[in-house]
Simulated assay, not measured.
Amino acid sequence: MLWHVIQDGGFQLGKLLEVHLTGALRLDKELALSEMLRHNIGVLHEPTAFGKTVTAAAVIARRQVNMLIRVNRTDLLSQWNEHLQTLPMRGQ
């Protein structure tokens, strides 16, 4: 099953990727990942320092498609981008 992106009230297939997260997840992130994978769409809403970036990267790696990440400030966007660059991922 592919991850779908909501766009203008409809669904659009995501861009297929070939990426792999090579690190292990802590139990709390693994539980969040399992719950997110049960649904086609959703919001990961967790407190600061939970590991939302790592969990989202795991969703991308498991689904093998890109995903929409929405933040409300440009500094958070920069933070996500910087953190994603440091994760143990390989592939595209």
Rank of each mutant, 00 (worst) to 15 (best):
residue 62 R to F: 09
residue 61 A to P: 06
residue 75 D to W: 03
residue 1 M to H: 12
residue 73 R to F: 10
residue 1 M to I: 09
residue 32 A to G: 06
residue 14 G to F: 08
residue 65 V to R: 09
residue 74 T to L: 13
residue 38 R to P: 02
residue 83 H to K: 14
residue 85 Q to N: 12
residue 23 G to D: 14
residue 92 Q to G: 06
residue 17 L to M: 11
residue 2 L to D: 08
residue 49 A to T: 09
residue 90 R to N: 10
residue 78 S to R: 12
residue 52 K to D: 09
residue 88 P to K: 07
residue 27 L to T: 10
residue 85 Q to K: 14
residue 91 G to P: 01
residue 50 F to Y: 14
residue 38 R to T: 07
residue 16 L to D: 12
residue 74 T to E: 13
residue 32 A to R: 01
residue 19 V to S: 10
residue 89 M to A: 11
residue 34 S to F: 03
residue 15 K to I: 14
residue 66 N to H: 15
residue 79 Q to M: 04
residue 10 G to M: 03
residue 19 V to A: 09
residue 68 L to D: 08
residue 78 S to F: 11
residue 76 L to A: 14
residue 23 G to C: 13
residue 3 W to F: 10
residue 45 H to P: 00
residue 54 V to R: 13
residue 9 G to R: 07
residue 76 L to I: 05
residue 27 L to R: 05
residue 41 I to F: 12
residue 19 V to W: 01
residue 49 A to M: 12
residue 41 I to C: 15
residue 42 G to P: 09
residue 15 K to Q: 14
residue 19 V to Q: 04
residue 71 V to R: 12
residue 79 Q to T: 02
residue 87 L to K: 06
residue 48 T to E: 10
residue 87 L to T: 03
residue 76 L to C: 08
residue 18 E to V: 05
residue 26 R to F: 11
residue 5 V to I: 15
residue 67 M to T: 14
residue 48 T to Q: 02
residue 80 W to E: 00
residue 84 L to C: 05
residue 65 V to W: 09
residue 58 A to T: 01
residue 48 T to P: 05
residue 81 N to C: 10
residue 70 R to T: 14
residue 91 G to Y: 03
residue 86 T to Q: 11
residue 85 Q to S: 15
residue 29 K to Y: 00
residue 16 L to M: 09
residue 31 L to A: 11
residue 47 P to H: 08
residue 43 V to R: 06
residue 76 L to T: 02
residue 92 Q to A: 13
residue 12 Q to M: 11
residue 57 A to L: 05
residue 82 E to V: 08
residue 71 V to H: 04
residue 75 D to Q: 11
residue 79 Q to L: 12
residue 39 H to T: 00
residue 69 I to L: 12
residue 19 V to D: 06
residue 6 I to S: 15
residue 30 E to A: 15
residue 72 N to T: 12
residue 43 V to H: 13
residue 39 H to M: 11
residue 30 E to T: 01
residue 72 N to Y: 13
residue 10 G to L: 10
residue 52 K to M: 07
residue 89 M to D: 01
residue 10 G to F: 09
residue 63 R to Q: 14
residue 25 L to E: 00
residue 71 V to E: 08
residue 12 Q to F: 08
residue 75 D to I: 06
residue 57 A to I: 01
residue 15 K to G: 06
residue 48 T to W: 03
residue 42 G to A: 02
residue 50 F to D: 03
residue 64 Q to R: 11
residue 15 K to M: 13
residue 28 D to Q: 08
residue 26 R to E: 08
residue 39 H to I: 03
residue 78 S to I: 12
residue 57 A to T: 04
residue 12 Q to S: 09
residue 84 L to E: 01
residue 31 L to I: 10
residue 76 L to G: 03
residue 63 R to Y: 13
residue 22 T to I: 00
residue 18 E to D: 15
residue 51 G to Y: 05
residue 50 F to L: 06
residue 74 T to C: 13
residue 25 L to K: 02
residue 64 Q to P: 03
residue 61 A to W: 05
residue 8 D to M: 02
residue 56 A to M: 13
residue 45 H to K: 06
residue 24 A to T: 07
residue 61 A to F: 04
residue 25 L to T: 01
residue 31 L to F: 01
residue 92 Q to R: 08
residue 61 A to H: 07
residue 30 E to K: 15
residue 70 R to V: 15
residue 60 I to R: 01
residue 11 F to Q: 10
residue 53 T to I: 05
residue 12 Q to W: 04
residue 32 A to P: 00
residue 86 T to Y: 05
residue 5 V to S: 08
residue 68 L to V: 15
residue 42 G to E: 02
residue 8 D to W: 03
residue 40 N to V: 07
residue 53 T to N: 03
